[in-house]
Design a protein around this nucleic acid. Structure first.
Ligand SMILES: [Mn+2]
Ligand SMILES: [Mn+2]
Ligand SMILES: [Mn+2]
Ligand SMILES: [Mn+2]
Lengths: 220, 220
DNA sequence: AAATATTTTTAGACTTGTCTAAAAATAAAT
DNA sequence: ATTTATTTTTAGACAAGTCTAAAAATATTT
């Protein structure tokens, strides 16, 4: 059992998340951008993570997670999302308030804490933003979901997640009455700016292309 | 609102706890011993804390908390003990398992987390070890309690706390059926080694002076 | 293929928090 | 009042994690 610092863990998570979106090795600049650090700092950290066998790193060629690095990153995401469920379901925080707490709580170390928390929360399978929570063995649930921008007028869907987790977007959704599980019907797409005319609970709204892009739906 | 590192917070807590036991300024060596660091490291940290106005530090003369330092230390103890209640009451950990988790959780920063946790736990006034939890305004509850070593044969008391929070002691108490709220009667004190003959739930046991010293009781 | 642009790494520096060893200040003992 | 012992501080070093600026490697254009 090797021990990792919070900084190392955050880099591992970032590598995992970039790998999810784009295939192939993660490049130094992409990692630095995701971490909000300089490319030089990312290079330093990649050497450290490579020494610890958590990543396979080749100079100038990018980095991938080793099985152990993947396991650790998955565990961090599990912890992050379980704590978010706790903060929303038990402490009554709104879905836009919990991310910064979870960023800290995911680094709490010690035997059994995660599994006890999971048990206490009744093994939730999705977090407050609709993201899947890997189980104790690191297994993921993948749901078929599409962006609102891919619907054709007349199609309906149920909100299953968001791609933008920032407060301004989540609060904007709150104002529109959009939450996980809410039904949305695409009425029309404006040719000029690709904005979406939608019906939510009987009322009509217009969502920008940017907002539509960040909404995931399960088709009805 | 100044921001503090975990290391700074741990030193503040240590200064607070030493001040509780012994009056007057806290000396460098005592602080270093409590923190498990060298005296040189303690001196370095005292300079940092002094720069941040969290302590009043005079070279060679020792250190005391400023009002702001006292407020911060109290808040840390509040957070530590509330998390311990959560871990025992909600997650089902034993009282000897929660300290290391709480040492990490007490450093989680952010608005309202502590008060929401306090609310969720129904404003507990004591932690799983019988220690008082300061309220949101930093007010303490002080209970009259005495060590088992101060009782005279024939006296009875209810266990209200422990002075040793380590696993070996707490697990030893578990084996004897000693927990918070349990009634203990002192039957006799052995002159030779000051051990205590006691009755707990009808059964008789012998407790060493060391163990007796670490048990707090409210007299019946 | 050579020149140019981009990406990545290296070099050197800074902060936090720690250490050991030596120096200085204070306290205790003769 | 000196000497001796103890406590505390300073000096110098190190690791983690960050930065900026310069050098090197790779990719793209011409
Ligand atoms: Mn989050
Ligand atoms: Mn989330
Ligand atoms: Mn504790
Ligand atoms: Mn406690």
């Amino acid at each position: 059992m090797l021990l990792t610092t919070s900084a190392e863990e955050n880099y591992l998570k970032a590598i995992f998340k970039i790998s999810e979106k784009e295939p192939g090795p993660v490049l130094t600049n992409a990692l630095a951008a995701a971490m909000g650090t300089s490319a030089a700092s990312a290079t330093d950290m990649l050497k450290r993570l490579s020494d610890k066998q958590l990543v396979a790193y080749e100079k100038y060629r990018g980095v991938t997670l080793t099985p152990e690095g993947d396991r650790l990153a998955t565990s961090l995401i599990r912890k992050h999302r379980l704590w978010e469920v706790f903060l929303v379901d038990k402490l009554g925080f709104a879905w836009d308030e919990v991310h910064d707490f979870a960023e800290q709580l995911e680094h709490v170390q010690g035997d059994n804490l995660t599994d006890r928390l999971d048990e206490y929360l009744n093994h939730p399978r999705f977090d407050p933003h609709g993201d899947p929570i890997p189980d104790a063995q690191g297994r993921w649930i993948r749901r078929p979901q599409v962006r609102l921008t891919t619907l054709t007028p007349g199609q309906k869907g149920i909100v299953t997640g968001v791609d933008d987790h920032t407060s301004p977007f989540l609060q904007y959704l709150d104002e529109l009455g959009i939450a996980l599980g809410v039904a949305i019907e695409l009425l029309d797409r404006t040719a000029y700016d690709q904005s979406s005319k939608v019906r939510i609970a009987g009322k009509e709204y217009t969502l920008s292309e940017k907002a539509s892009q960040n909404l995931f739906l399960r088709l009805e």
